[in-house]
Amino acid sequence: MSASKRLTKELADCTTNSPPGMHISLPDDSNLFKWHVILDGPAGTVYAGGRFGVVVQLHENYPFRSPTVTFATRIYHPNVTNDNLGNICLSVLKPENWKPAVKLVSVLEAVRNLLVEPQPDDPLEARIADEYKNDRKEFEKNARAYVAQYAKGAVNWEKAEAGAAAAAGGATTSTTTNTTSAR
C-alpha cells in the first residue's frame, strides 16, 4: 500500500531530523495513520511556554485525501474552534486545495505558523478574530490565560480522542474508539 511506504518515510524524516519546536510520536506503533504531535508555543508569541497537543489523523487514501489535523489542547485562537474539537481552518487542508505532494511536515509548519501569525480575515471563531483585530490587548490576555489553564504540563490526549474521531468523520483507520464523553 502506497500510503504506508510514504508514511514510514515521512515519519523517519521527521524523527531523524525533527522540525524545530515539534515532538512527533505514534500513539500506537502499529498504526501509522495517527500521529501525536506536541507543538511548543513559538517564542515571542502569546502562546510561548505552552505545549499544544496536535492530532494528525490520516485517511486510508492518504496522500490523495487531505489529513485531518486538530488541536487536542484548548487554545484561544481566531482560526481554531474554541471547543474540545479543536478544528483548524487552514487552506492547505481543504480538500480542494490539498495536493498529494505536500508533506505532513509542511502542514505542521503551517499550523505552527498559524500560532505566529493568526489569520483573522479567515476566521473560524469570529468573535476571537474581532477581538484580535480590534482589541489586541484583550486578546493577548485571554490567549495567555488559556495557555496557563490548558497548555501547561502533559497533554491530555484521551480527552481529544473523541473529538478527533468525530472530526475525521469516522472514515479513518482509527483503532481506538474511546466512548468517554468529551466533556
Binding site: F64, K99, P100
Partner: peptide
C-alpha cells in the same frame, strides 16, 4: 499510479475536471 489515483480522487470524489492542477505543491 499516483497520478491515476490523484485524478480519480479529483474526478470521482470531488467532481472536479476543468481545474485539476499538477499534484505538486
Amino acid at each position: 499510479d499516483c497520478y491515476r489515483q490523484y485524478l480519480a480522487q479529483k474526478i470521482v470524489e470531488e467532481g472536479e475536471a476543468a481545474r485539476i492542477q499538477c499534484p505538486s505543491d
